[in-house]
Amino acid sequence: MPKAMRDVFGETLCELKENPKIVVLDADLGSATRALKFKDVCPERFLDIGIAEQNMVGIAAGLSTCDMIPIATTFSVFITGRAFDQVRNTVAHGNLNVKLVGTHNGVCVGYDGATHEAVEDIALMRSVPNMVVLVPADAKETEMAIKAAIAYKGPVYLRISRIAVPDIHGDDYKFCIGKGEVLRDGTDVAIISTGIMTSRAIEAAEILLKDGVHASVVNICSIKPIDRKLIVEVAKRTKRIVTVEEHTIIGGLGSAVSEILSVEWPVPIRFVGINDEFGTSGAPEVLLEKYKLTAKDIIRAVKSF
């Protein structure tokens, strides 16, 4: 059984306690984000700020200027939405070494419904200068992205899913900020995806292969900075692109890819994502179907060219 990505987050935090600069901040959701795991092993560097996300981000900014590496954690909707101005004007404008982690995002938040389902967080964070945006696709990549974020000096937003997805990466996987990854090579079309959708992109590519369609699958964890070179290369090779994300199609991965290709190598693109609407309550798997975020939907997009 693969691990839920938020569980990997909690476990990786515990490993990081050896770094004395690390301090973990929580806004009364530590049980859900798994940040409380860090409290168990390192209570002296765990700060429960209370239900005050804006204050948490401001406190993190202050900590970072005094030689600490703060990791501020809550649901994506609150860290990128409620605290947006604090993120923009205090953290990013100062290029401060603050790590912002959202563990519940997209419709996979599930039963809590629209108010808790960030479907625009990538767009928000991507639009802010200096911000690095990482969206891991499985358990291993979650661990590596967290470690890369800590090694990097500057503001990072990590979008970590609440759920588990099939493992894509082996133990020897190396992740590098700014680099994308070709998981499957094919010349008919390229499926460029991020986060929990990458395993679904692979599933789609396998089904397409049976129909004689050879699809490349490119995983983009580093949404910003993004691997321009790789995206242009696959566009040249496949001439058709489908982008896939558990996020609104406005301003996310699809937009990032389009911004590059429309200038450097225009090709037709289809977008699989949330179509400018809010989420709703329900089971994650049911919601992924409702919002057309399954392998079937990726295949439909590929066949629409």
Partner: peptide, 22 residues
Amino acid sequence: RHIDSYLQGHPDMKHTAGVDMS
């Protein structure tokens, strides 16, 4: 909290009679 129910996890004034604010 069921799929397609108007009784969302958190109150939604668009769909539930008597809810004055989401």
